[in-house]
Structures are given as C-alpha cells and as structure tokens.
C-alpha cells in the first residue's frame, strides 16, 4: 500500500491493519486478518465477498459499531479506535450515516419525520436548501406524510437513503441496501446512491453480495477469509462476477 500524503487527505475512511477476533480458544474465529484499506472522499466503494468473508465485520468496524482487536480505524480526521460512548455518539451524529438492508424506519413516524430524525436527535435544524435537494433527488415529495407501512419497499429504502444523506455525513455505510428489494426498486435506489456521489460529492461504502449492485460503484474491494484479495476500478457486472467466481473456487477448495 503506497499511500501518499495527498491521498491521505482525500480518505473519508481508513482501516490500518485491522484484526477482528471473536471468542477464544477452541471457539476462536478470526473475522479480519490485518485489513488495510482507504475509502476516498467523493467515491462510491463496494465491499464484496462470499458469506463469512468478513465484509460485514469490516463495515461494522469502519463505522465504529464494533471494536477492533488490533489496528486502527479512522473516519475523516477522527481516529475511531479507542473512542468512548460519547465520542462514538458524536461520530455517528456528525460523520456517519447508515442505510440498512431492513430499511429500519420507525413505523410510528411519517416519512418526513423519519428523514429528519437524525437532525432532531442531534438538536439541529436542517439546511432547507439541502433538505429540498435531497427530497427532490429521492423523488418522495408527494409521500412525505405517509407512514412506512403505506410505502413500497423501494420507497421505504429511498426514505432511509434520504435520512442518511440529510445530515451530510463524511461517509455513508450501506449494508446490503438492495437485499430486500425487487430488481427494479433496487436499481432505483442504486441509481440514486450513485447520483448522490456524482452530483453532491457524497462518500458511500456499500456492502453487497450482488454483482449487479456492485457494478454501480466506482470501485469494488473483494474480501475472502478476512483479507482483501482483489480490487476492481470502474467495474461492470461481468467483471465483478468473474472475480467472484475466481474467489469462490479456492474458497471451496479451502473448505
């Protein structure tokens, strides 16, 4: 890894020799083995890998949701590793946004209230112009007063995206955002995520196992057995699929 000073300034999130070990003794599982990676600002990065490869663990560690066993994680200028609860809370308020596979909207709140929830938790007022832009981009203007139960899956996930975008975080982590959607709704959401990177300079890190979804990213990082094994720039569904196939075979043999 030949990182220059200039590149460092460009990194929105960074993992330095991150190890994650669960359990001990016989039951010990090594989820990450010395992963180092940078996620540049203003880019859409996908993390891929077969199940059990550690891709979700990597994302949880990057986002400060899980602690690392060794190594450090940085988001922007902040070193996440070693932060206490209040530091992590501040990090989540200011620097990080989440999009979940299960959408995770509060069923009791309207779409608009859900979108504004992170800001109201932090006690901040939304920037009206930015809020307007977000609403226009997600195309939910006529659905703002609906409850999640009255929205389709795709619409719910777009609300979740808007919620992540509205506080302009340093980086948005998306965990299988299309995993619960049909292919059309999935495409809508992915287009929308790519647009927010291209047009508004948002940084997004997405975990997925779907090659079509990964093809929307600017860059794909491949994990297997807790290590980064490959990388693709400007991927297409075909190149991603090919890489995955190559990864699967030794993994099968390994088993």
């Amino acid at each position: 890894m030949t990182a220059t000073v200039g590149q460092q300034a460009q990194a929105a999130a960074r993992a330095n020799d991150v190890w994650k070990v669960y359990g001990s003794g016989e039951a010990q599982v090594v989820a990450l083995r010395g992963v180092s990676a940078e996620f540049e600002r203003g880019r859409f990065t996908a993390i891929m890998g077969p199940s059990g490869s550690g891709k979700s663990t990597l994302m949880h560690c990057l986002a400060g949701l899980d602690s690392v066993t060794r190594g450090t994680v940085e988001i922007g200028e902040t070193t996440v590793t070693g932060l206490g609860d209040s530091g992590l809370t501040k990090l989540r308020r200011d620097k990080v946004g989440f999009i979940f596979q299960q959408f995770n909207l509060l069923p009791t709140l309207t779409a608009k209230e859900n979108i504004l929830l992170p800001l109201s938790i932090a006690g901040r007022k939304p920037d009206p112009a930015w809020y307007d832009t977000v609403i226009t981009t997600v195309g939910l203007r006529d659905r703002l007063d609906h409850r999640p139960a009255q929205l389709s899956g795709g619409q719910q996930q777009r609300v979740a995206c808007a919620r992540a975008l509205v506080s302009r975080p340093e980086v948005i982590f998306a965990d299988e955002p299309t995993g619960n959607l049909d292919s059309r709704s999935g495409a809508e959401v992915l287009n929308f995520l790519r647009d927010s990177v291209r047009e508004h300079g948002q940084t997004i890190v997405m975990v997925t196992h779907d090659p079509t979804a990964a093809a929307y990213a600017d860059r794909v990082v491949f994990l297997a057995d807790g290590e980064i094994v490959s990388e693709l720039i400007e991927p297409t569904a075909e190149t991603v699929l090919d890489t995955m196939k190559k990864l699967d075979t030794p993994a099968e043999v390994g088993n």
């Binding site: 949701l65 809370t89 989540r92 200011d94 946004g97 929830l117 992170p118 938790i121 506080s167």
Partner: peptide, 16 residues
C-alpha cells in the same frame, strides 16, 4: 431493541 439501536446508530446518545 431494534428501534432503539437504530436511534443509537443515527446518533442518539445513551442519555437521550
């Protein structure tokens, strides 16, 4: 649990 965890994930403090 899930709802409260979400709140925490999007920035709510323990005190909140």
């Amino acid at each position: 649990t899930r709802e409260l965890a979400l709140m925490r994930a999007i920035g709510a403090s323990g005190r909140q």
